[in-house]
């Protein structure tokens, strides 16, 4: 081997060692860049925007945390946050109970159960805007299905969308109809993955269905249940399309979720800084909920 060939080989080896060291970072780079581009930068830009006063489509001055203070003192923001929290609580609670009940029912190998399982997931695959339109047609006081049925039975028109309390209930009902299938699917998968031995032992010991559910099914299903609730809670916080089509937040502010108020503030009123501050505050609430839920899951796993 000549000296020049030896030098060439040594250089190649050195290059190779360098590349070996850099390779993990190079392979990670695309994913990292993607995360930076679609998560970190928007968050940074959103935060920067939230500290600016915007008028006429441009940032006029830096105002520090004034937009956050303004949001906190804005009755409409507080009202929409309260409506959102109530909406999330009632929707997720109903969906959990119904989803669990349906999952328990469909976990058994009964006749027509496959058909029922398929039918149950249909609402989830319909576009939210379409769901909003369908429910608007259902609830409309003049020509809606509910009013038509009520009048054919001798009753009067059913006022859902023109009454604040009923409109809120109607919105929760829409969400429950659409998203119970998601809870059902997750919980059904959870139930079907449970070990059979504890249930057989309980049956041998003479435990009834309710006792078996409380002592075995529910404790073993709890981690899955928490995951399902967390996922649905995060999703419910961002509900927009259906409300936009169904009520646009009305009557009054009875169904004005924070997503609707944020959208109007940003796109209709062009108050970019203020809208960014509001929505970042909501993001913090959602992150706090998720963080608490994640800790709960970890504690369950280690218990």
């Amino acid at each position: 081997m000549t000296a020049s060939t030896r030098n060439g080989v040594t250089r190649l080896r050195r290059q190779g060692e360098g590349l070996d060291r850099a390779l993990p970072y190079l392979l990670l780079a695309p994913a990292l860049l993607l995360v930076l581009a679609v998560v970190v930068y928007p968050l940074y830009d959103g935060f920067r925007t939230s500290t600016q006063f915007w008028r006429f489509g441009r940032a006029l001055e830096d105002v520090g945390l004034d937009n956050y203070r303004q949001a906190w003192n804005d009755p409409q923001f507080r009202s929409s946050l309260w409506v959102t929290l109530r909406f999330v609580f009632f929707s997720v609670a109903c969906e959990t109970v119904l989803g669990l009940g349906l999952a328990l029912l469909c976990a058994r190998e009964l006749r027509f159960i496959r058909w029922a399982r398929t039918a149950l997931i249909v609402p989830m695959v319909i576009t939210p805007v379409v769901v909003g339109i369908v429910f608007r047609l259902l609830y409309a006081s003049d020509t809606g299905l509910l009013s038509t049925v009520s009048q054919s039975l001798g009753g009067g028109q059913v006022q859902v969308l023109s009454d604040p309390s009923r409109a809120f209930v109607g919105l929760v009902a829409l969400d429950v109809w659409e998203w119970t299938p998601l809870m059902f699917l997750i919980l059904l998968a959870g139930i079907q993955s449970l070990p059979v031995e504890p249930f057989e032992a309980a049956r041998v010991d003479g435990a009834g269905a309710w006792r078996t559910f409380l002592d075995h099914t529910l404790p073993m299903l709890r981690p899955v249940l928490i995951v399902a609730i967390v996922l649905r809670t995060i999703d419910a916080f961002t509900t927009f399309d259906q409300v936009y089509v169904l009520t646009h937040g009305g009557p009054g502010t009875s169904t004005e979720l924070i997503s609707i108020y944020g959208f109007d503030t940003f796109f209709k009123f062009q108050q970019f800084g203020y809208a960014a501050a509001m929505l970042l505050m909501v993001a913090l609430v959602v992150m706090a909920v998720s963080f608490l839920a994640a800790r709960l899951i970890r504690r369950q796993a280690t218990a």
Binding site: A140, S141, D142, T143, Q157, Q159, L161, S162, T247, G250, P251
Partner: peptide
């Protein structure tokens, strides 16, 4: 006006 006029938009007033 119709009892549910608080929920009426262009489509419903037009229909009436």
């Amino acid at each position: 006006a119709p009892a549910g006029v608080a929920e009426f938009d262009s489509d419903q007033e037009g229909a009436a």
